[in-house]
């Protein structure tokens, strides 16, 4: 499974997004606000999710904010860190 699909899958599972499917999440769709509709509590939960499932640490929100924009930005962040 590619990293973006895996991200979408853990997003749905860990954030209990039962009302959407992997296919419905666009790679470039905004995760927060309009778009997927996540909020600040989801943001910090996502930090844990990324640590738990990808072994990648996001130190603080300064580092986290640009990474957590979309599936694309998050996948790129994880791939960069995993190098």
């Amino acid at each position: 499974m590619d990293i973006k699909t895996k991200l979408k899958q853990v997003l749905i599972e860990e954030l209990n997004l039962e009302d959407i499917t992997i296919e419905e999440i666009g790679d470039d769709e905004a995760l927060f606000g309009e778009g997927l509709g996540l909020d600040s509590l989801d943001a910090v939960e996502l930090v844990v999710v990324v640590q738990k499932h990808f072994g990648v640490e996001i130190k603080d929100m300064e580092e986290g904010r640009p990474a957590l924009q979309s599936i694309n930005s998050l996948a790129a962040f994880i791939e960069e860190k995993q190098k």
Binding site: L41, E45, V48, K52, E57
Partner: peptide, 13 residues
């Protein structure tokens, strides 16, 4: 969440 994955993975939700 702490016991399974460590303090760094404590679930804020």
């Amino acid at each position: 969440s702490i016991i399974a994955d460590g303090d760094a993975c404590a679930s804020p939700t």
